[in-house]
Structure formats: C-alpha cells, structure tokens
Design a protein around this nucleic acid. Structure first.
Lengths: 110, 110
DNA sequence: TGAACGTATGAACAAGTGTTCATACGATAC
DNA sequence: GTATCGTATGAACACTTGTTCATACGTTCA
C-alpha cells in the first residue's frame, strides 16, 4: 500500500469515529457485563426485585461479595435500590440491559 | 421476610435462569467489549476492513499491542482475517457487534 | 541469496480486579 | 438500653489483564 493511501485511510476513519472519551466510557460500561457474578446478578433481577441476601443465595456467593458487585452496578446506573426496613431491594434500572444481554446470548449460541 | 418465602423465591429464580455455563460464556463475551483499545479497534472496523498497521495508527498504539488484541477478538469470533501479501486485513465477523455497540451508546448517552 | 516490510508471539512488568475476612452501620425486636 | 439481623465498606490478598520490548515468522523485491 502506498504511504499516501495509508494516510488517507487513517484520517478518514479517524474522522468518522466517535470521540475517544465516549469510547472509553463505552468500554467502562461493557466492563460491567464482563464478570460472571455481575451477569448472574443482573440475570436474577430480570424476574423481579430481590434483596441482597436472596441474590447471595441465588448466585452462591458471600453477602459481601454481592454487596460489592451491586455497588459497581449502581455506579454504572444498571440497578437501583429501594430500602425497606433492614432490607435493600435491588432492581434493574431499565430494559436496555435485558436487550444487550439477549444480543450477547444470540451471538454465543451461534 | 419468612425463611420459607425466602427459599421459595431463591428456588424460583434459580429455575428460570439460564444455566451457569452459559452465563460464564456470556461474561467472557462481554469482557471483550470492556477494553477501550478493543472497542476502538472494533469501531474502526465498522467502516471497512483494515490492515494491522492502519489500525495501529488509528488507535495510536504499538503494532504488537494491536496484534495481541486482534488475537483476543479473533478468539471470540468478533473479527476475521484475510491475508494478502505481507498484510493481514481484519474485518468484523457479523453485525451483532455493531448493534450491541449502539445499544451501549444509547445507554451511556442518557 | 539477503534485505526490508508487515505481522505474530513470548516474556516481563505494572496496573487493575474480584473475593474474602473483619467490622461498622442502621433498623428492628426484645 | 441490648441483641440481632441485613447490609455496606475497608484492607489484604491472589489473580487477571494490557502494554511494551525483543524477536521470530512469512512474504516480497532486488
């Protein structure tokens, strides 16, 4: 490939890409989906809101582990909390999550 | 919450969830999206197939870094290679990727 | 043949991440 | 008040991950 052509292609693609900050944010967003514990927590929440100890039982991990991961999910606006007495009930923030989840499933089941 | 009710909920949710192996695979799949270098590589490939050195220039990283990451993308069937002379041209495997990408964008731009 | 180029890969290192333990906090029940 | 329960959080640790350097491989061209 000629150097000139190479430079043109690089410039062209660079122009059409979203700005770098957005792509870094996007990576951080997907990072949240990239852990099996968090994926299982989100999956459990597809059905209904759940307390922390319920989630811990479902995924078979320590309460503190689940609590730490719920914090991560909260920070990326993937879940919301509702307090009721001693318990915290978590639920999914919106239905984007379920769609992204399903698209991922489609891909790996090919 | 009564112990009985707790147990029922846990059993119920467990039944409705995909099996654990699938969810682990899914996490591994999303893990690939969770790195800014890989995200930028995929994003660059939305337009057209590109050689390794072009990609390196676009994302502003070493050729070996890009090569390592392309290997990861290949292993998860996200990109495919076509060799032509000294060059390797990479392109996206399918259009799921772009859709997942766009859904992620939608979420963070809210 | 040898040199130059594009690419792939292994080793090494730094940085990041997930889990557990211990503990603190807040609310309820006694 | 104290005890108990559910939850949150900090520290410590092992483990994973991304990048770079050095180098090897394969192809083209002289």
């Amino acid at each position: 490939m000629a150097h000139e052509e190479h430079r043109e292609i690089v410039q062209d693609i660079k122009k059409q890409m979203p700005d770098t900050d957005t792509l870094f944010e996007l990576a951080d967003f997907f990072k949240v989906f990239g852990d099996s514990t968090r994926i299982r927590i989100m999956c459990a929440l597809f059905e209904r809101e759940l307390s922390v100890c319920c989630i811990a039982d479902i995924v078979g991990m320590e309460q503190s582990t689940v609590s730490h991961q719920l914090r991560v999910l909260r920070q990326e606006n993937l879940v919301k909390v509702r307090r009721e007495g001693k318990q915290s009930y978590y639920s999914l923030e919106d239905e984007h999550i379920q769609k992204i989840f399903e698209m991922g499933l489609e891909h790996i089941l090919e």
